[in-house]
Structures are given as C-alpha cells and as structure tokens.
Design a protein around this nucleic acid. Structure first.
Length: 947
RNA sequence: GCGGAUGUGGCGUAAUUGGUAGCCGCGCCAGACUUAGGAUCUGGUGCCGCGAGGCGUGGGGGUUCGAGUCCCUCCAUCCGCACCA
C-alpha cells in the first residue's frame, strides 16, 4: 500500500532527506567544463524565535531555481549560512550572563533543523557563520586591505572615457608624497586635507604621518556625531532614540562627537550610481540607491561677510536664481556662527544653537511644519549685485550636507519661502511664467523665464544656469561642483558581540596587527556591558593586548599594546560573504583564485527590500574595492536581484465581555461592552474557534463561557506583523508535520506573486495537497500499486504535456511560480480525466515538478525504475510541434460586447470569416438586417462587428 | 513633505503585443458514495434579473472598432526616507 497519506509522506520525506545527505548530492565543486550558476539567499540572522512561515518564501523560490538550473545542466552553487553577530544575542547576554556564542549556536541549530526538513538543496559543506573566527579572520583581513588603501581619482576608465578612480594600496600614495607632496594628488579624501610638500611630509614624525594618511585611507577614523546615552554607557542608533531619550529605559541622549572608524564609501559614489545601470535589480531598489547616493550637479561659491574678511561657502543647484537671494541661512552647527554673530544677537543665537544641537535629524524631519531660526546680526554680500543680505541660522539647513550653508531664494524654494514668510523677509521673483509663482498650487520651480536678473533675463533656467556658472568662474568666486548626499559610513559599535578590529594603539597611533596573527579573537569578559567609565565592553578583557613581532635585527621584544576596543558593525561580515561560499574552507585566502575565477558573482540574489540601502550598498562598495585591489574580478556582486514580499500575520481575536470570563462571538459583540484579546491562530480554523483547545491554552480560560452564533464561536481578524506577542505566528514545522514539506513548498509559491506582501492564511493549503495526491494517483491503482503503462501517448496527451512544459519553463524564467503551480494543476486535472498513466507523459512531468516538490518527485522517479537521483535528470524540452492548432474558436462581438462564438480554420481568409459571421442567425438578430459600419477581424483573436 | 508600490468575485489570485475579465485554488451550494468523516467523487458558483438582458477590474474623464492593460485626474491602503539647498 502506498497511498499519499500523512504517514507515507513523512516516510518519503525522511527517507530522501537522509539519503540526499548521506550521498552528498548537493555538494558542488568548481567544474570549468560546465556553465556555473550561483543562487544565493540573503544571509539570515538566527533569531531566538526560529523560522516562521514567512522566512522560507524566498528560500523556496530560490531553491526551485537552483534545482531547475541543475536540470538544465548548470553547475549550481546554492549555499546557506548565518549572519550571526548581532544585537539581540548581545542584549540577551547582558540580561542573562549567557555568552552570546552559546545562544547564537543554539539558534543556528534550530534554524538548520527547520531548514533541513523543508528539503532545500543547500550545499551545507560550505556553510559559514560570521561569528566563527575562521570566518571573521578574513573580515579582519579585508578591513586591513581597506585601511591600507586610498582612492585615486586620477585613474581614467578608458571604456567609459570618464574619471571614476580606483582603489590603490596606500603605498602608492606614500610614494607620491615622498616625491612631490600632495599638490597633484587627486583623491577621495577629507574636506580639510591640507596641501603639503614632500619636505613637509618627510619632516612629519610617525604620528603626524598617520594622521595625515587618515585623510585618505578607505578605512579611517574620524570625529562623527553620535547619539550618546550616558546612562547606558553606549551609542544608540537613530531608531533607538525617541523624543530625545533612549527607547529602552528612557534615559537622556546627547548628540556628541566621537572618534569612530568610518568607511570612505563616498569615494565610490559615482561608480555605485553608474553600476546600477548594469544590473538587473527591481527598479524601486535602484531608485532608493540613487536617492541615497543623491548626486546633484551645481556650483559652490563664496559670499563675503560685510565689513569682514570672512567668507561663507554655499552650494547651490540653482545658481540661475542668484538674483533672487534675499537672505542666507547657516546650519546651527556651522563653524562661522560664533564668529559672525553680533553682540546684540549673541544671546538669541546661542539659545537657538543649544536647542537645535540636541534635536536629532529624525526629529527635525518629523517637524517639517515648525519653522524656527535666529538672526545672527551679520550681513553677507551677493557677489553678483553687491546686495546686502541678512545671515540667519536655522535647523532646516543641515551641517552634514553640502557646505552647511544655503543662499536662500524664497521665490523658488518652498522651504526658503516658508522661512521668509515666517520671519517677514523680502521675496524677489526671478522667474516668470504660468507655473512660476510660488504662492500658487501649480508651482513648478523649474519653469518660466528669468526676470529681475540682469544679464540672465529672458533665459530659461537651464540656459541661465550655464550662463551664471560661466560668470562665477570668470569672477573667480566659485566653481562647478558635483555634490553627493551620501556620507561615509560609520564602521564600528561600542559593543561586544562583533568582530574585533585587527588594530592596536602604539603611542596613540592606530596600527594594524600582522597578517599572520589573524584572527584576533574575541576575548572572554565577565559581563557584556560597558565599563563604569563608559568604555566599550572589550575594556573588561584581562591581559588582552598585542605584542608586535620584533623588527628584524632588533633584540628587545616589543611591549604589549592595547587593542582597539570597539567592534565592527553588523554589516562587516555580510559585505563579502558571497565570496567566502565560493571557497569556504580556504585557510590561506579569503577566496582562492581558481574558485573566484569560476564562480565570479551571484547570478540570482533573493531577499527582502529592507536591505535596499544598507547591505546592498555596502556589499557593492566592498566588491568594487576588492576588485580594484586585484582580489576579485566582479565589479558588481549581484547580477540579478529579486525581492520577495513579506508574509504578514493574520491575528485572531476573541471578545471578552468586560468584567466576566464570558466570550461573545464576533458578529454579536456589538451588543456588549467587550475587550478584544489575541487568540492563538493555531486554535482557530477558518475563523471558528476551537473552544476546547482554547480553554486548555491558558489556565485563566479553563472555565470560560461562550456566546455562540449558529453553534460556533467566530473570531475577528486583523493583519499585523507576524510575531510571538500577537499569537499569530505560524510555524513551518506544523505545516510540514501536517501536510509535508512538498505541500508547504507548493503552497507558499501558490499564494501569489513572489514580490507581493500578503498575510498568511493556511486555509487554501488543502488545494495544493489534493493536487499532489492526484498527481501521485496518476501513477498508482486504487490499491496503491504503481501502474505505469508503456503505451504510445495520444496526440491529446502529448499536447497537454508539452503545453505544461512550455508554461513551466516560461514561468520559471519570469520567476512567476504561482502560475506554474496552476498550470501543473490544470495538467493533472486533464490527465486524470483522460485516465492517462503512460510513462512517456508522466516521466517528463515528474522531472518538471521535481524542483517544486522534490521528495514526492524523487520517490516517483525511483518507482519508475531509476536507480540514480532525479537531480541528475535533464529538464524535458517542450516541442512546439504538439501545440499547433488548426482552428480557433473566435469570440464574435458586437460593438465590443461578445455575443457568440464561432469556430474557423486559422488559415481562413478574413473576408470569408466576415461573410460567415454576418450571415449567421445570431449576428443578424443584432444587426436587424442593416449593414454594419465596420467589421474587424483579427486572425486568431477576435471578430468585432460595429453597428 | 518627498520617493516607491498596490487597488480585479466572499477570499488568495489569473489574464503574450490593447483582443472572450475572473484561469487555478479556497470557501459556499446541490448531488453521489459511504464503515457518517473536517474523507472521496460529480455538477454549480462575479453581481442584479423569472427571463430577454443589464451591470461589472478603487471613483471620474479620455484615446480606440475594442481598455484590467494606454493617457489625465481624484481617492484609499501599504512601504521607504537623511527638510539635501
């Protein structure tokens, strides 16, 4: 007996999972004789809650592609691993004292067990975990390369004929400094980099040299603004701060400057932008990255302060509106503020700066409508017309963007306009046209022609910008400038559970450890909290320091120096992991040359869109840096990206009558005063509460009473995030034990388009389960014996087969998995009604279905008499020959409304079709004998009679 | 405020280039079988109407012989964001 029963499914799935693992069928090696295909899922963070039903959505889709590509003859790399450093484990460690490595390892075990039983084709022998010293050894190594690198902008990309620059070893910069100083160096560097001569360079001591080089290094230290929470002794991210206090605990948060490691991602801005045009990513993700990079082309120019030597630099994209400048605004943090403020305004300005300083950017953003500012008392001179304009400070101008100062043109910028209105400042119109009036709803800032603008009058904005730019350069008061809004990325955390830096301090100078000393492993500490004095947790480590190897020729051992105490941020380990999978066991390189040459980049990357500007940008950055330094060949790491949607939870509610332990069914609740409580979704079937299970669920419900409708208790529902606290988590384990992994896989794909977000609802799962059983039954008689015939298939059967194969192949190439399942269902329905059990039809179908339902397919494959795994089969090629039709049933419509259908040969001339249609009884009923105005015949599509 | 997306039966959804709206599945209705079950099988199922027929893809308008699909406009929901000069 072999019914497709719960027991049989469990037996089949376990049997094959064990066999696949034993035989190592998913192990993959470089094989230059075959084309490669690299399918990657985004690195999961192993949370303590385990997998819920939403997680596998993307994994199933990518696994289907991986299996399909194998059947198409590709050598497929499909690995899995864990992004295992992270705050939740650290938070848990702080609370319980349990080492984060232990909880992390436990969580990973849970994840792996859950993943295994869904039947993914991962090559687990390549698994990586970012918290494994054998892995983070190479994260540290890459950091060292980036520390030892700078970005040379004088390297021209010949293929694009543009300056994009290149990452180079820092030594090439040092060589230039030795020879001629930095006067000719074109590099991505800090704004405040001084110009020095070779002599000055040579005269620098070791510390001065290092400080100077930090202006250029890709990994460098800088003072950055952070949210410092003294009570917690740590730095908080923007979303850990709410209303100026810490979200956890509600302690005050201050914005202070702190010396931190940063990554000079801004050097790559242009390449990160251009590269987007070369990769197949969802347009919204590309757009988000473009916005994040935020390239704007404009002009930087100087305004002098009246009666002073001081000048203020401003950046503007609308130099054409220069004659409309009526005031100037500096960021409250701007360094000139204290110098230009007059005595009368001092008090007001200082008060304003004090308030503005501690307002986070997020706060400033959420209060767009609140206009605030203060007058400094100083005036600047418009270099174009000598006009004296007041200088204000306001927090709508950000210190971190451009120069931290704007020339305000209230007639063409809505924020400047609002500011001018609020403080009664003058407004000069410089553009005239139907949509050029800022006070009107249809205001379009780039419209109309220039007025009140001297030599620019009459021009459109574009021409005026060009003309004004020429003037600026001619006057020598500024230059064209491309500005990026992307800032360098902070690379560090004041935390324990992350990669230690391979950095120690000698006389306050950061120095790299030697490569042979890697990895620098995390030391054991007594508690995972910051120290009393506010130092990071690593300061608690005892006897933790670095003793450099003695220089050749010296005898005395070096003393022990202190290590860097911060750790790397969450994105360090995930910014290069796809390379490690190519060669995860390599002890001498982060990826071996041969493996890297073969696998090169990721062909399909599957993951959520929440990583659009974080992980996906950093990964592209590191990939480019590693390429420039000659370690890898890919300019872009991920050729094709797909964002799977999010599965939300469907929360279920029961309604307790206040002050009682009585629950009223959803549709009757309006007559009572009730409180809605979350009921566990696993106690609810199709909105009907399982009352007995509910009573057992929690002791306080044990003697609950119920007011029913039609004998049932109906729950209310609401879409919410899937989370433990809302009791709406559906665990894939439960689905697997009820229906099997194959049904779960099929159902997740059947739910709808992969990219769409939707609430999980198990209700429809019977449909795909029945489909699998019907498919199974095609191979079996009523007693469960396999019966497959070797008879020749009929033309109808072949048509069904090839129609299905064609659709399956088309859909998978469009990543449209839901429609594939529908097509399989149609196919099985048709074959069932034909009672087809012919090998020639069923065998190709088993192969085609195997990426979706691998266990069932493998079992049937074996029953069909194959000794070798179905993974080694070839995907059956459909034959167009069987799909040809000789006739078509035309819908016949009158004025676009279908009235009847008529069958005609596909090669029948239009005129004949028209004649036959008009002669037909049904149509003449509508035409009432009158000749139609027009008859449209589209061969193979439709006939439309226009009356 | 800016940017992105989405709106189709009771529900999840489907619909090459504009060419039969609602495939497939759930649910529901009716029937068959039966060791009475939340099993299986068969048929039906967008809405209104007895019917002929009419109405229908968030609302309104447009282009077209023909619009879910193209254009304009409005509305709703969801997601992202760093007031970017």
């Amino acid at each position: 007996m072999a019914e497709y029963s719960k027991e049989e499914i469990r037996r089949i799935e376990q049997k094959w999972q064990e066999k696949w693992e034993k035989d190592g069928v998913y192990k993959v090696e470089t094989d230059p004789s075959r084309p490669k295909y690299y399918v990657l899922d985004m690195f999961p963070y192993p949370s303590g809650a385990g997998l819920h039903v939403g997680h596998p959505l993307g994994y199933i889709a990518s696994d289907i592609v991986a299996r399909y590509k194998r059947l198409k003859g590709f050598n497929v790399l499909h690995p899995m691993g864990f992004d295992a450093f992270g705050l939740p484990a650290e938070q848990y460690a702080i609370q319980t004292g349990q080492h984060p490595a232990i909880t992390t390892a436990k969580n990973i075990e849970t994840y792996k067990r859950q993943l295994r039983q869904i039947g993914f084709s991962y090559d687990w022998s390549r698994e990586v975990q970012t918290c494994d010293p054998q892995y983070y050894k190479w994260t540290q190594w890459i950091f060292m390369q980036l520390f030892n690198a700078w970005y040379n902008l004088s390297v021209v990309d010949n293929s694009k004929n543009s300056i994009v620059g290149k990452t180079e070893p820092i030594q090439t910069l040092i060589d230039v400094l030795e020879k001629e100083g930095n006067k000719n160096v074109k590099a991505a560097c800090n704004e405040d980099t001084p110009v020095i001569t070779a002599e000055q360079w040579k005269a620098f001591n070791e510390k001065e040299k290092e400080i100077f080089l930090q202006h250029y290094r890709i990994a460098y230290q800088s003072e950055t603004m952070v949210n410092w929470c003294a009570a917690l002794g740590t730095v908080l991210s923007n979303d850990e701060v709410k209303d100026g206090v810490s979200e956890r605990g509600g302690y005050p948060v201050e914005r202070i400057k702190m010396l931190q490691w940063s990554m000079r991602i801004s050097a790559y801005a242009e390449r990160l932008l251009n590269g987007l045009d070369t990769i197949h990513w969802p347009e919204p993700v590309k757009e988000m990255q473009r916005n994040w990079i935020g390239k704007s082309v404009g002009c930087e120019l100087q305004f002098t302060i009246n009666n002073s030597q001081l000048t203020i630099d401003v950046f503007t994209t609308r130099i054409d509106t220069i004659f409309g400048v009526t005031f100037m605004v500096l960021a409250p943090e701007h360094e000139l503020v204290s110098q230009i403020t007059t005595a009368e305004q001092k008090e007001e300005v200082e008060k304003y700066v004090e308030v503005a300083k501690n307002r986070s950017e997020r706060e400033r953003m959420s209060e767009v409508k609140r206009i605030s500012g203060a007058f400094t008392g100083a005036y600047a001179i418009n270099p174009f017309n000598g006009a004296k304009i007041p200088v204000w400070i306001a927090d709508y101008v950000l210190a971190g963007y451009g120069t931290g100062a704007v020339m305000a043109v209230p007639s063409s910028d809505t924020r400047d306009y609002a500011f001018a209105k609020h403080f009664n400042l003058p407004i000069i119109n410089v553009l005239e046209g139907p949509t050029s009036d800022i006070t009107k709803d249809n205001f379009e800032p780039k419209s109309g022609s220039m007025i009140n603008s001297d030599f620019l009058n009459g021009l459109d904005w574009k021409t005026a910008i060009e003309k004004a730019l020429e003037k600026v350069e001619q006057l020598g008061i500024g230059q064209r400038k491309v500005n990026f809004r992307m800032r360098d990325a902070i690379f560090g955390r004041q935390r324990y559970w992350g990669e230690p830096f391979p950095v120690y301090y000698k006389d306050g100078i950061p120095k790299l450890v030697e490569e042979k000393d890697l990895p620098i492993t995390l030391p054991e500490i007594d508690e995972y909290k910051p120290t009393e004095s506010g130092e990071p947790p690593l300061a608690r480590a005892k006897d933790w320091g670095y003793r450099p190897h003695p220089q050749p020729g010296t005898r005395n051992p070096e003393p022990v120096y202190p290590f860097e105490l911060t750790t790397m941020p969450g994105w360090a380990g995930s910014s290069w992991y796809w390379f490690r999978y190519m060669d995860s066991k390599n002890n001498s390189e982060f990826v071996g040359k041969e493996a890297e040459q073969y696998w090169k980049d990721v062909d399909l990357y599957m993951g959520g869109s929440e990583h659009a500007t974080g992980h996906l940008l950093y990964s592209r950055f590191w990939c480019k840096a590693l390429k420039d330094l000659g370690y890898v060949q890919a300019e872009e790491p991920f050729k094709k990206l797909i964002n799977q949607g999010h599965i939300q939870g469907m929360s279920k509610f029961v309604y307790r009558i206040n002050g009682t332990n009585k629950f009223v069914s959803s549709n009757l609740k309006k007559d009572y005063d009730v409180t809605a409580l979350h009921a566990d979704v696993n106690l609810v079937d199709n909105d009907t509460l399982n009352i007995e299970a509910f009573k057992k669920w929690r002791p306080d419900f044990a003697d609950a009473e119920f007011i029913l409708e039609n004998g049932k208790y109906i729950c209310g529902s609401e879409v919410e995030k899937m989370s433990k606290s809302k009791h709406n988590v559906v665990n894939p384990d439960d689905i697997v034990s009820n229906y099997g992994a194959d049904t779960l896989r099929l159902y997740e794909m059947f739910l709808g388009p992969l990219e769409l977000s939707k609430p999980w609802n198990t209700n429809g799962i019977d449909g795909v389960f029945k489909f699998l059983r019907k498919f199974w039954n095609l191979f079996h008689d009523a007693q469960g014996n396999i019966i497959v015939s070797d008879a020749e298939p009929t033309r109808d059967e072949l048509k069904i087969l090839h129609k299905t194969l064609k659709k399956v192949e088309q859909d998978i190439n469009n990543f449209s998995f839901n429609t594939t399942i529908s097509e399989f269902m149609i196919c099985v329905n048709e074959l069932t009604s034909l009672k087809c059990n012919k090998r020639a039809v069923l065998e190709p179908l088993v192969i085609a279905l195997s990426p979706y339902a691998p266990h069932t397919a493998e079992e049937l494959w074996q029953k069909l008499g194959h000794a070798e795994t179905i993974l080694k089969a070839s995907f059956p090629q459909y034959n167009e020959e069987y799909l040809k039709e000789s006739s078509f049933e035309y819908p016949i419509s009158i004025n676009g409304r279908v009235r009847t259908k008529m069958e005609f040969a596909l090669d029948m001339p239009k005129e004949d079709i028209e004649k036959t249609v008009l002669a037909s009884e049904i149509i003449s009923k509508w035409t009432e004998g009158k000749p139609p105005k027009k008859v449209i015949v589209v061969p193979g599509k439709i006939v439309n009679v226009v009356l």
